[in-house]
Amino acid sequence: MVGNDIVDLNLASKESNWQRKGFLDKQFTTKERREILAAENPFLKVWLFWSMKEAAYKCYTQKFEKRFFAPQKFECSLTSEDTGVVIFKELPFYTSSDLTTFYIHTTAEDIFIENNSEIRMYAGIGNPNFVAKYLKKRLEEKTGILAQEIVKRKTNIGAPQFYQKEKLLTKSCSISHHGNYGAYVFMLNEY
């Protein structure tokens, strides 16, 4: 399974006060809070950890078809500046993040397999329908099925899946958007 999350850093700096009382305590573990407060740029560390947690959460919910809100139970560890592992209930989710001055985009997979998924990031198009349109075009390239024949359906937990008629094309899929940015990640279904 795959998941992804994107944070528009300009929007986050305007709309979220991560320094308000109780925010860090509700969202992050003790270990993560120590790392955030010791970071050269605590703002970036907050949103990097947040995007890692969200990407792992989306991966988990697709696998177990259960939604909930418990960000503090997902613990982030960085293995490098842009890769890491998020642990939830002893399950690892391997993350890779793209950190820019404009956004942070993180993908997560429940098994570490190099180049297992298809990732695309689009700047300036945070609208989820617009991102889905580009995802359909990429599925057309990968499968040979015309984009207009591909339809998006949501699972009972709200995860996107893409079909041609009744044929499932994506084994796992995640679409994210925030502010001016949108992104997707998918794994093709074996068919």
Score class of each variant (00 low, 15 high):
Gly3Glu: 15
Gly3Phe: 14
Asn4Ile: 09
Asp5Lys: 14
Asp5Met: 14
Asp5Glu: 10
Leu9Trp: 02
Asn10Trp: 05
Ala12Asn: 06
Ala12Met: 09
Ala12Cys: 07
Ser16Met: 03
Ser16Lys: 02
Asn17Met: 12
Asn17Gly: 05
Asn17Asp: 15
Asn17Ser: 14
Trp18Ala: 13
Arg20Trp: 00
Lys21Glu: 13
Phe28Gln: 08
Thr30Asp: 07
Lys31Tyr: 13
Leu37Tyr: 07
Ala38Gln: 14
Ala38Asp: 12
Glu40Leu: 05
Pro42Tyr: 14
Phe43Thr: 01
Phe43Asp: 10
Phe43Pro: 07
Lys45Cys: 01
Val46Ser: 09
Lys53Thr: 13
Glu54Ser: 06
Ala56Gly: 05
Lys58Ser: 05
Thr61Leu: 05
Gln62Asn: 14
Glu65Lys: 08
Lys66Phe: 15
Phe68Gly: 04
Phe69Met: 08
Ala70Asp: 13
Pro71Val: 06
Pro71Ile: 06
Gln72Pro: 00
Lys73Asn: 05
Phe74Gln: 02
Phe74Met: 02
Glu75Trp: 01
Cys76Val: 13
Cys76Gln: 07
Cys76Leu: 12
Cys76Phe: 12
Ser77Cys: 07
Leu78Ile: 07
Leu78Asp: 05
Thr79Glu: 09
Ser80Pro: 00
Ser80Cys: 10
Thr83Tyr: 06
Gly84Val: 02
Ile87Lys: 11
Ile87Pro: 00
Phe88Met: 08
Glu90Lys: 09
Glu90Trp: 01
Phe93Ser: 04
Phe93Trp: 10
Tyr94Arg: 10
Thr95Gln: 02
Ser96Cys: 14
Ser96Glu: 00
Ser97Leu: 05
Tyr103Arg: 12
Ile104Gly: 05
Ile104Gln: 11
Thr106Val: 04
Glu109Ser: 08
Asp110Tyr: 06
Ile113Pro: 11
Glu114Ile: 00
Asn115Arg: 11
Asn115Thr: 06
Asn116Asp: 14
Ser117Thr: 11
Ser117His: 11
Ser117Phe: 10
Ile119Gln: 14
Met121Phe: 15
Tyr122Ser: 01
Tyr122Trp: 10
Gly124Lys: 13
Gly126Ile: 00
Gly126His: 06
Gly126Ser: 09
Asn127Asp: 14
Asn127Thr: 08
Pro128Val: 15
Phe130Val: 12
Val131Cys: 00
Leu135Gln: 11
Lys136Ile: 05
Lys136Cys: 12
Arg138His: 08
Arg138Asn: 12
Arg138Val: 02
Arg138Thr: 07
Glu140Ala: 09
Glu141Val: 10
Lys142His: 06
Lys142Tyr: 06
Leu146Gly: 01
Ala147Ser: 13
Ala147Glu: 12
Gln148Val: 15
Glu149Met: 11
Ile150Asp: 07
Ile150Val: 02
Lys152Met: 06
Lys152Gln: 04
Arg153Leu: 03
Lys154Cys: 03
Asn156His: 09
Ile157Tyr: 00
Ile157Gln: 15
Gly158Arg: 10
Gly158Tyr: 09
Ala159Gly: 01
Ala159Val: 08
Pro160Ala: 15
Phe162Val: 07
Phe162Ala: 12
Lys165Cys: 04
Lys167Trp: 00
Thr170Gly: 03
Lys171Leu: 09
Cys173Arg: 15
Ser174Asn: 06
Gly179Val: 04
Tyr181Met: 01
Tyr181Phe: 15
Ala183Pro: 00
Tyr184Ala: 09
Val185Trp: 13
Glu190Ala: 03
Tyr191Lys: 11
